[in-house]
Measured scan of single mutants.
Amino acid sequence: KLPPGWEKRMFANGTVYYFNHITNASQFERPSG
Rank of each mutant, 00 (worst) to 15 (best):
N24G: 15
R30M: 11
A12E: 12
G33H: 13
F11T: 15
R9V: 07
K1T: 14
N20Y: 04
S26Y: 13
V16D: 04
T23S: 07
A25L: 13
Q27R: 06
A12Q: 11
N13G: 07
N20H: 05
T23H: 04
A12G: 09
L2A: 03
H21R: 13
R30G: 03
P4Q: 11
A12M: 09
N13V: 04
G33E: 14
V16P: 08
R30S: 08
E7I: 09
P3F: 03
E29Y: 08
R30I: 13
T15S: 09
S32M: 14
S32R: 10
I22H: 10
Q27Y: 05
L2N: 02
S32F: 12
F11R: 10
T15E: 12
E7G: 04
N13K: 03
G5F: 09
P31R: 01
N20R: 01
K8N: 03
G5W: 06
R30F: 15
N13E: 06
A12H: 09
F19I: 06
F19T: 02
G33F: 15
R30T: 08
N20V: 01
F11P: 02
G14L: 04
F11W: 11
L2P: 11
H21S: 14
P4F: 14
N20D: 04
P4I: 11
P4L: 11
G5E: 08
H21K: 13
A25R: 12
M10K: 10
Y17E: 04
P3A: 06
T15Y: 07
E29D: 11
P3D: 05
T23M: 06
L2I: 06
R9D: 01
N13A: 04
T23Y: 06
I22G: 06
Y17I: 07
Y18W: 09
Q27S: 10
T15Q: 14
Y18I: 01
H21L: 15
F11V: 05
W6I: 01
H21T: 15
Y18G: 00
Y18R: 00
H21V: 15
I22Y: 12
P31K: 01
Q27D: 02
W6P: 00
G33L: 13
A12T: 10
P3M: 05
F19G: 01
G14D: 03
G14R: 02
F28Q: 08
H21Q: 11
G33P: 12
R30L: 11
E29L: 08
N24V: 04
K8E: 14
A25E: 15
W6Y: 01
K8Y: 09
K1S: 14
S26G: 07
F11M: 15
F28P: 07
M10G: 05
F28L: 13
G33R: 10
N24I: 04
S26N: 07
E29P: 06
T23A: 05
A25Y: 08
E29T: 10
H21E: 08
T15P: 03
N13H: 04
Y18H: 00
G33D: 14
A12W: 09
K1Q: 15
Q27P: 00
E29W: 09
P3I: 04
P31Q: 01
F28Y: 12
P31H: 01
G14Y: 02
P31E: 01
K8M: 15
K1H: 13
Y17P: 00
I22S: 07
K8R: 14
Y18T: 00
K8A: 12
Y18N: 00
G14W: 03
M10A: 10
Q27G: 02
P4S: 11
T15F: 08
F19Q: 02
V16Q: 06
T15K: 12
H21I: 15
S32V: 13
N20E: 01
G5Y: 09
F11Y: 14
N20F: 03
H21G: 07
T15H: 07
E7L: 06
F28D: 06
L2Y: 05
A12N: 09
H21F: 15
I22T: 09
F28E: 08
F28G: 05
P31F: 01
T15A: 10
P4T: 09
G5P: 11
E7S: 09
E29M: 08
A25T: 14
T23R: 04
Y17A: 02
V16W: 11
F11C: 15
E7K: 05
W6M: 00
F19Y: 14
G33K: 10
N13W: 06
R30A: 10
E7A: 06
V16N: 03
I22D: 09
W6D: 00
I22M: 10
F11K: 11
F28M: 11
S26P: 02
M10H: 10
F19P: 01
N24H: 12
P3C: 07
P4Y: 14
K8D: 02
F19A: 02
G14A: 03
R9N: 02
K1R: 13
N24Y: 08
Q27F: 05
N13Y: 03
P31T: 01
N20I: 02
A12S: 12
G5I: 03
K8G: 05
W6L: 01
N20Q: 03
I22Q: 09
G14E: 03
Y18L: 00
A25H: 12
Y18D: 00
R9Y: 07
A12F: 07
R9G: 04
K1V: 14
F28V: 11
L2V: 04
W6G: 00
M10V: 14
F28K: 09
E7W: 05
P4E: 12
M10E: 11
G33A: 14
W6A: 00
E29K: 06
S26T: 15
T23F: 06
F19R: 02
T15M: 12
M10Q: 12
K1F: 13
F28N: 08
P31D: 01
N24S: 10
G33V: 13
G33Q: 12
K1P: 15
Y17T: 02
F19W: 09
N24E: 09
F11N: 15
P4D: 11
F19N: 01
N24A: 09
Q27A: 06
L2D: 05
N24T: 07
A25M: 14
R9E: 01
F11S: 15
F11G: 12
Y18P: 00
R30K: 10
T15N: 08
F28T: 11
R9S: 03
R30Q: 09
R30E: 10
I22W: 10
E29Q: 10
H21N: 13
N20M: 02
P3H: 04
S32L: 12
P31M: 01
L2K: 06
A25I: 14
K8H: 06
K1M: 13
G14T: 02
M10P: 02
F19L: 05
S32K: 11
V16T: 09
A25F: 09
M10Y: 14
R30Y: 13
P3V: 03
Y18Q: 00
G14N: 05
G33Y: 14
H21M: 12
R30N: 10
N24M: 13
P31A: 02
T15D: 11
Y18K: 00
P3Y: 04
